[in-house]
Design a protein around this nucleic acid. Structure first.
Lengths: 147, 147
DNA sequence: GGAGAATGCATAAGCGCTAATATATCTCTG
DNA sequence: CAGAGATATATTAGCGCTTATGCATTCTCC
C-alpha cells in the first residue's frame, strides 16, 4: 500500500516540482478545487467538503498559507478562519486543473490494465470491514482460544 | 488506502493491547518470524529478509529492544549489530504465531467477499506502474501541453 | 448578565515508512 | 601502515493523516 502511494502521489509531487512549483503538494488540490467551486469557506466546511478531519484541513491550510496559496481571514464569528485563495493560487489554477484531469485520465488508464479497478476493490474492502470488523474476523479465525 | 490500513493494522494493534501486550506492534511479527526461521541476524540481513530498508529495520529493532523483545550483540565485525530474540519474545511466540495465522485466515475470508483479492489487484497495479511510471502516464494524458 | 456547555481552530504526538545524513568500523591499496 | 573508499548502523526530517489536547470564542439558559 505504501509502495503504491509512493508510486502515485510521489510522482505527482515530483511533477509539480519539475513544473516550477516545488512548494505545491498534491494534497492542496482538493482544497483549491473546493474553494473555486464554492468560494471562501471556514476550515470546518473545507474539512467536510474534502472528507478529512478538521485537524488535517487545518494543517493543510496552514502549509498552503505559508506557501502563499491562501489567506486566512476572521469573520464575524471570531473563532472562524475563513480561507481565501490568493492571486498566486488563481494564477496556478490552469495548471492545477490540467494536472487534476490528466491524473484522472492516467488513473483510468491504469485501472484498465488491471483485472479490476483498484478503487472499486478498495471500496469493497472498506465496506466489508464496516459490515464485519477485522477484529471480529481475526478472533473468529482462531485467535480466541489464546485469550 | 489510509482508511484500509487503519481498519486492518489498527485492529491487530488493538487486539495485542487487549491480549496484554500493549507494547507489541504488528510490524514486529515479520522480524520475529525471520529470527525464528533463520536464527540471529544482522540488521541488514533482517531488512532484506522482510523487505524494507535498513533504516526501517533499524528503527523497528530499536523499538523492539526497548520493549525487551530482542537484544543486540556486536559480532566479530564491530559495525554489525546481531539481533537475538529474548526469552520474552520466545514466551510470546505461540500468541504471535496464532495471531499471524488467524490474520492470514481473516484476510482470506475478506478477500473472498471482494470481487477480487485485494493483494492481487494492488500487486498488479505496482507491476503496471513499474512497466510504465505514473509520471509518464500523467504527461501523456494531457499535462505535457502545460509545460 | 453570568456560568457552563458547545463550537472552531491549532498544536502535539504518533503511525510506519523512505531518503538523506552522520558516525563508526573495516578493507584495500600504495 | 596511512589514508581512501566501502560497508554497517543510527539518526533526523518528512509524508499525510488521526487522535487527543488546549485555548479562545460564542451560545444557551436561568
Amino acid at each position: 500500500m505504501r509502495t503504491l502511494y509512493e508510486l502515485t502521489d510521489g510522482a505527482i509531487a515530483r511533477l509539480y516540482a519539475e513544473l516550477g512549483m516545488p512548494d505545491y503538494r498534491p494534497r492542496y488540490s482538493p482544497v483549491v478545487r473546493a474553494l473555486v467551486a464554492s468560494g471562501p469557506m471556514t476550515i470546518r466546511e473545507l474539512a467536510s467538503a474534502i472528507g478529512v478531519t478538521h485537524s488535517a484541513a487545518s494543517q493543510t491550510v496552514s502549509q498552503m498559507r505559508r506557501a502563499g496559496f491562501v489567506t486566512l481571514e476572521t469573520g464575524s464569528d471570531a473563532r472562524q478562519r475563513i480561507v481565501h485563495l490568493t492571486g498566486r493560487a488563481r494564477e496556478a489554477l490552469p495548471l492545477i486543473e490540467a494536472e487534476w484531469e490528466a491524473t484522472a485520465r492516467a488513473a483510468a488508464e491504469l485501472d484498465a490494465e488491471l483485472p479490476m479497478p483498484l478503487g472499486e476493490v478498495m471500496l469493497a474492502a472498506v465496506r466489508a470491514l464496516e459490515r464485519r470488523p477485522f477484529r471480529d474476523r481475526i478472533l473468529a479465525a482462531g485467535l480466541r482460544e489464546h485469550i
